[in-house]
Computed example of a mutant assay.
Amino acid sequence: MRQAQARQTGSARIIVLVVLLLIIVATLAGGGAWLLTGQQGARAATAKAKPAMPATPIFVKVAPFTVNLDSDACGPVLLYTGMTLKVADSDTAAFLNEHMPQVRSRLLMLLSGQDARELISPQGKQTLADSILEMLSTRLTDPQPTLAIDEVLFTEFIVQ
């Protein structure tokens, strides 16, 4: 009888140990899964929180030059200006650099017809920048890729 009781007690202990072992394994597995999903969520949140770096701007420098403007009551007027063109892609930059003599010639022709009194004001400079963008939208050669010029930036500007 004692042997039967001992076997039942031994069997009960083994069952209890197996059940405890299963509970521990299940708890560890659940905790591991929770940690992994928590870390992935944190990584995703960190990735979303980092602002995207803006694209590096591409600039095409136009060497400074002096232009005679329309004369006013005081006599001849000069414009000394330097500018940089902000472009959207390297193809546009390469094309403009290859055709810079034509670009400068068109700029000289456009600038020589300007009125000095209008160019002195900020609005006059903005109007001139808009006119330059419009002038650069006309084809320089045939065939020509579509040019992506975003902005005209005046780096030097003296009316005298």
Rank of each mutant, 00 (worst) to 15 (best):
I14C: 12
A116W: 07
T138R: 09
G113I: 05
A129P: 07
A47K: 09
A73F: 05
I149M: 02
F157A: 02
K86L: 04
A73M: 07
M135G: 07
A63Y: 09
F59C: 03
W34D: 10
L108D: 08
D89V: 04
I23M: 15
A129E: 02
I158G: 01
I149W: 00
A52K: 08
L85D: 00
P64R: 05
V87A: 00
N68C: 07
N68T: 09
L20F: 10
S137V: 04
G10I: 14
K50P: 04
Q5I: 13
T9Q: 15
G30E: 11
R139N: 10
T81M: 11
A52Q: 12
M1H: 11
A94Y: 09
L136Q: 00
A63M: 14
V152L: 01
T92C: 02
V152P: 04
P64E: 06
R139Y: 03
G113A: 14
E98L: 08
T146M: 09
L110T: 05
T141R: 05
P143Y: 04
L36D: 10
E98A: 06
T155F: 08
R117I: 06
P54V: 02
V152N: 01
K86M: 01
D115K: 14
A26T: 05
K86A: 03
A4Q: 13
F65W: 06
R117V: 12
A45T: 08
A55E: 15
A47C: 07
Q160L: 11
P51I: 07
P64S: 09
G124H: 02
V62R: 02
K48W: 12
F59Y: 12
M109V: 13
V25I: 15
V62G: 00
L128E: 01
Q5F: 14
D115P: 08
L78Q: 10
A44V: 15
A49H: 07
Q160W: 04
Q8W: 12
V67S: 07
M109T: 14
S90L: 09
A6K: 10
L128S: 06
G75K: 05
M1I: 10
M100G: 05
I14Y: 08
P54Q: 10
V60H: 01
P101N: 06
A4D: 15
A26G: 09
T37I: 12
P122T: 06
G41K: 14
V25M: 13
Q5S: 11
E151F: 04
L22E: 09
E118K: 14
H99K: 06
V103N: 00
S121F: 03
G41P: 00
I24P: 03
R104D: 08
K48C: 14
L108Q: 13
L136V: 03
T27A: 15
F65Q: 10
V159T: 04
Q123S: 15
L35I: 12
L140T: 00
F95I: 07
D72K: 13
I14M: 13
E98D: 13
S112Q: 13
S90Y: 05
L96K: 00
M83W: 02
R7D: 12
A49E: 11
C74M: 12
G30Q: 09
R139I: 06
M135W: 04
L110K: 06
V18R: 08
L111S: 05
V159Y: 00
E151S: 09
A93M: 03
Q5A: 11
L110A: 06
Q144P: 03
A12T: 09
D115C: 10
V25T: 14
A148N: 10
G41W: 10
S11D: 14
